[in-house]
Simulated scan of single mutants.
Amino acid sequence: LQPQESAPRQGPQTLQWLYEHHRSQLCLAVAYWTNSDDSVRGGSSYSELACNPPSPIAVFRGNLDIETLGGAGFASQRTTGENRTWDVSDYDGLLLDVTQADGKQYTLTLKDELLPKSPNGREQSTISWEYDFKPKCGGEKVFARWDDFKATYRGREKADAKPLDLKSVKRISLMMRSFFGTQEGDFSLSLISISVAKAPNSTYEPYRDDPTKQSDRSLNEKTEMAPNKLKQSWLGWLLGFCGVA
């Protein structure tokens, strides 16, 4: 994903076409992401978003430490910039093309408000919209509908939050966290793309942590429409120059 204000507009193209014609810019988009780990609270977790040309895959990886903060901890990568905005109101959700995972649960987060930093240099808290997912180890396409994102404030669900402003999304992040001490250690999530998409007619349900409820299944298994029929824009977020088609 690249900020709307600086991305040149292009017509619909495939990731393979962009990869062959813009090989030298393969990892440009990684520069638009930075770490946001629990070190800001005195923790020891760390993360990175890495790619290795000519591969079209980016890897969100690192180590989640839960000992330093007494059972808690988080490691995340987020988009940079304070004045970037995405208008995603014409779409139904985000599609993550995961090629390999490690069996751990991850969180995708959106923000529609960023406040100036406090005098001590720390970011001020605002509402986050979170979607938890646990992709298959062999990879799958995970579709997160806007309605599946839950509003939270400082880690707690906020039921009275105003709706997510889909015309003004200002930050996107990937997070690994402990989920109350249930996971820790090294983690690795490999992706080809994160893109906005129209939803097919499906019964797709988000991942649920409660084992008594129906668990997450891949987009391929629960939709009648093949993945390549999904209407997508911002294909190839790794390439860093795909605008909204």
Rank of each mutant, 00 (worst) to 15 (best):
Y207G: 00
K213H: 13
K213S: 12
R177H: 10
S188F: 06
D102Q: 07
S215Y: 03
L96T: 04
G71C: 09
C242M: 03
L219V: 08
S202E: 10
D216I: 02
T68S: 07
I127A: 05
A7I: 05
L230T: 11
S193L: 02
A72V: 08
A161I: 10
R217K: 14
Y153R: 15
K162L: 13
Y32D: 12
Q2V: 12
D102C: 04
E224Q: 14
L115W: 05
S44E: 13
K158F: 12
D90C: 03
Y46R: 11
Y207C: 06
T203F: 10
L69M: 12
F74V: 02
P206Y: 08
K198F: 00
T79M: 06
T80M: 04
E140C: 05
R84S: 07
S168H: 15
L96K: 06
F60C: 00
E48K: 12
P54K: 10
H21A: 08
F133T: 03
R156S: 13
Q124E: 15
L49F: 12
A151L: 11
Q124W: 09
H21W: 13
P56D: 04
S202Q: 09
Q105C: 13
Y106R: 01
S178E: 08
I66M: 04
T203C: 12
E224C: 15
G81P: 07
L94T: 00
K213D: 10
V40K: 09
T203L: 13
A144F: 03
P135Y: 01
N120Y: 06
P227M: 10
E184I: 01
R171N: 07
K170N: 09
E205V: 15
E113R: 14
V98I: 14
A199S: 15
S178T: 14
L49I: 04
D97Q: 13
G93H: 02
L69D: 08
T212G: 04
L219D: 02
L69W: 06
E82Y: 04
P227I: 06
D97T: 11
L69A: 06
V169C: 04
L239T: 02
Y46F: 15
D37F: 00
Y207P: 00
G243I: 09
N52T: 13
D165L: 07
G138M: 10
A199Q: 09
A199R: 01
S36Q: 10
C137Q: 15
M176F: 04
H21N: 15
L108W: 03
S36W: 11
S89A: 13
Y46E: 08
M225W: 05
W33H: 04
R23L: 14
R208S: 14
G185H: 01
A197P: 02
Q13M: 14
G93Q: 03
Q232S: 02
L94P: 00
E82N: 08
A245V: 14
Q25C: 08
G73C: 07
Y91K: 04
D210M: 05
E140I: 04
L230N: 09
D216H: 15
S215L: 10
T34V: 07
D210H: 02
Y19S: 09
